[in-house]
């Protein structure tokens, strides 16, 4: 209904063609531009832009054999072609850092309730490392048993970050850590209804299908 409302208004506007109504239309659109703008900028991001976000270069590249984690495992990826423990790819923080990290600031209203700068590898890179970037869905699971399906396209088309640090600091479980998905809150016009649930925190594992 929210989306269809202007379509009712417009024929009226066209019919009446009155200046006051045009002014009214301006008023209406202003209140609804969150929704309207989303479509306009979707997919505007690209590799070049994401490259600008990069803060550290990768030492571990997709296709490279991944050694068993030496530190505490912070993420388990299943369903990929690359594994290191059984049929899982277990990664510690150092390994994630070695994938090359990006950093950007977002309005973290959902978790910490304010503006924060996150850094970490792109989820895309993690999936490529795991050889799971051909999949369609990431079944993600949190430490607190929260489950959410995220399309692989989010990772391939957006600078979806597997954040390992907030404001340059490691994140405790109490602080939504140790890893969490971070979506850009500016420039992409992502619909909160769809995307808010995908901001999974206290991430434990990703199972790609």
């Amino acid at each position: 209904m929210l989306l269809t409302r202007p379509s009712y208004v417009r024929p009226a506007l066209a019919l009446l063609a009155s200046v006051p109504l045009l002014l009214g239309l301006v008023g209406c659109s202003a209140s609804g531009d969150d929704a309207v703008g989303a479509v306009a900028v979707a997919g505007a991001g690209g590799d070049d832009e994401q490259a600008d976000l990069r803060v550290s270069e990768a030492t571990l590249h997709p296709g490279d054999p991944v050694p068993r984690p030496s530190g505490k495992v912070v993420l388990v990826v299943r369903g990929g072609t690359t594994t290191n423990v059984g049929d899982e790819l277990r990664l510690d923080l150092a390994q994630l850092d070695s994938l090359g990290t990006v950093e950007y600031a977002v309005d973290d209203d959902l978790a910490t309730g304010g503006r924060a700068t996150f850094s970490g590898p792109l989820v895309r890179t993690v999936l490529e490392l795991a050889g799971a970037d051909e999949g369609t869905t990431m079944r993600t699971e949190a430490l607190n048993d929260y489950l959410v399906d995220v399309p692989v396209t989010d990772a391939t088309e957006l600078p979806l970050m597997l954040a390992t640090r907030m404001n340059g600091k490691r994140m405790s479980v109490a602080n939504y850590g140790p890893t969490r998905f971070v979506y850009p809150t500016e420039g992409y016009g992502l619909d909160p209804v769809t995307y808010d649930p995908r901001w999974i925190w206290q991430l434990r594992s990703i199972e790609v299908e």
């Binding site: 009446l16 009155s18 006051p20 109504l21 002014l23 009214g24 008023g27 209406c28």
Partner: peptide, 10 residues
């Protein structure tokens, strides 16, 4: 009437 409707609508 059109203007009135428009105003009301606004």
């Amino acid at each position: 009437v059109s203007v009135a409707v428009s105003a009301d609508l606004v």
